[in-house]
């Protein structure tokens, strides 16, 4: 979006819409996953804790999807985007849609996304897109707490009993392959960086990596080797898990379109 150029560039507008949609979808899908814990968490207090994270993420998703709908300009609001799209139209990070597994897997997934969001929202707070910057600034405050929560648990599990150590390491080994997508820029990312709307992902990757190493050291867990990845969630190429998750999330709107409380 070069300032002063009066003509709209459709490719640029499309990239802007997709970029905001990706952020919103990642928050939405993770919120839905976390809400699956409600009534099942290991303690009443954890039940509330996870639900609180889910609510923060849902709030972010609402702001981002509403904005994405406006950028798209085809009259889709947050509900239309959340409840009336199929899996291939979702552009969340594939990491966010991975199943809850045991508590260790939920915590490792949460921590990986929290550390990513910390870097993303910090950078986006200075975005040339002032509306996105305002959403990021609000989300950053929430994310700092999320990271406090998840890194605390990572430490307790990693540096806990042999059983909790084993499970946390297994979750990390299993989920690590999805982290390659976090900082791999595609054309949408690059367009947005050039316009000053989005950060340069490789720069963020270095800061993310340092924080991850620090947390893993404290948790006495081993960082797995990097792997190439076949999932491009932000291009709509998902693991099978998203397709299984969406019917539960969208059931009400799909069955009773336009239903209101």
């Amino acid at each position: 979006m070069p300032a002063g150029s009066g003509e709209r560039d459709p490719a640029q507008d499309e990239a802007h819409f997709r970029y905001v949609l990706r952020l919103g979808d990642t928050s939405l899908v993770l919120a839905q996953r976390l809400s699956e814990w409600i009534g099942h968490a290991p303690a009443l207090e954890e039940d509330l804790g996870l639900a609180n994270l889910a609510l923060d993420l849902l709030g972010q998703a609402r702001l981002l999807l509403t904005y994405a709908g406006e950028l798209e300009g085809r009259g889709r609001d947050e509900d239309a985007l959340a409840f009336l799209r199929d899996a291939p139209d979702f552009v969340n990070l594939a990491l966010a849609e991975q199943p809850n597994g045991d508590f260790g897997q939920t915590i490792v997934r949460q921590w990986l996304i929290d550390t990513w969001q910390l870097e993303m929202y910090t950078a986006l707070s200075a975005s040339a897109d002032t509306r996105l910057a305002a959403i990021a600034a609000k989300a950053l405050r929430e994310t700092r707490y999320h990271h406090r929560f998840s890194s605390g648990w990572l430490m307790r599990l990693g540096d806990g009993t042999p059983e909790s150590q084993r499970r946390a390491q297994r979750a990390l080994d299993d989920l690590w392959r999805f982290t390659a997508e976090l900082f791999a820029p595609d054309e949408t990312d690059e367009r947005m960086s050039r316009a000053g709307i989005a950060p340069q992902l490789p720069e963020l990757a270095a800061r993310w990596s340092a924080r991850v190493d620090e947390d893993l050291r404290a948790a006495t867990l081993r960082r797995p080797p990097d792997q190439p990845y076949p999932w491009h969630g932000k291009r709509g190429e998902h693991t099978e898990h998203l397709g299984h998750m969406l019917p539960a999330m969208q059931h009400l709107q799909r069955t009773y379109p336009g239903v209101r409380w």
């Binding site: 207090e45 954890e46 509330l48 804790g49 609180n52 707490y145 406090r148 929560f149 605390g152 307790r156």
Partner: peptide, 12 residues
């Protein structure tokens, strides 16, 4: 532990 107690207190 105490750190978790603060977090739970915040959430509850």
């Amino acid at each position: 532990d105490a750190r978790m107690a603060i977090e739970h207190a915040r959430d509850v």
